[in-house]
Nucleic acid binder design. Sequence first.
DNA 1: TATAGCGCTATACTTTAGTATAGAAACCTA
DNA 2: TAGGTTTCTATACTAAAGTATAGCGCTATA
Lengths: 120, 120
Amino acid sequence: METKISFREAKSCPVQFVLAVNDTLNVINGKWKLPIIGSLLFGKKRFTEIQRNISKITPRMLSKELKELELNGIVKRTVYNTTPVSVEYELTNSGKSIGDVLDKMLEWGLQHRQSVLSKP
Amino acid sequence: METKISFREAKSCPVQFVLAVNDTLNVINGKWKLPIIGSLLFGKKRFTEIQRNISKITPRMLSKELKELELNGIVKRTVYNTTPVSVEYELTNSGKSIGDVLDKMLEWGLQHRQSVLSKP
DNA sequence: TATAGCGCTATACTTTAGTATAGAAACCTA
DNA sequence: TAGGTTTCTATACTAAAGTATAGCGCTATA
């Protein structure tokens, strides 16, 4: 079974293209993933720090989203047995590398906003 | 009022960063936007052509998503008064330029999948 | 005259995502 | 011993996204 697909293969096959781009989208989808990743791009953080960083997120959502991000290999969770226990979250290498993708999206977002504003 | 924000400004301000990246995400969010854009990256298409391209999309969804994409300045809709009327959809310049963003996402998606598979 | 294709819209429904609120288990401090 | 901090979990709810199904107005073709 062939699992490794090259960029060129994926780009020329609409199905593979959509699947691979969706992989990326799924990692950052939902209301809170982006703020969480954004917060962790500035360094490792503890649960409550992230919570304070992102006003209005409920602990239920933060916990749920962090779990998903961990499952997807974007975030690494480390428990220290201090008292009370402290937990640190940080981006994996994959997590850090998504920064480049976000930069591209940032760039396009700004550009697109300009082009929409200039011709209404 | 200052509306134009530079890449550097946005990158250094978490709030602006998340906002601008979200602009981009909103354009491609939902289950069907990506397949639709993907389909139009290969050239202009008619309603039924897109529908046939994307198996399982209902006309309700296709119509709704195309409207949103048009509103967001990604897709241009042209009506020809043939009989019966024919309608063509194509990507705007902004729509085409999102291709670069998708390529980045494709690249990361493939890379990430490899890194997840290699260390389970 | 019946059937089929085009480009949709309408209505009703189900599923998924997100919110609100409360509280538990562990320990520390006052 | 009461109250606070940390890192969550449980339950119940609302809102948003998506699906299923039917049909309309038009016209060309059989």
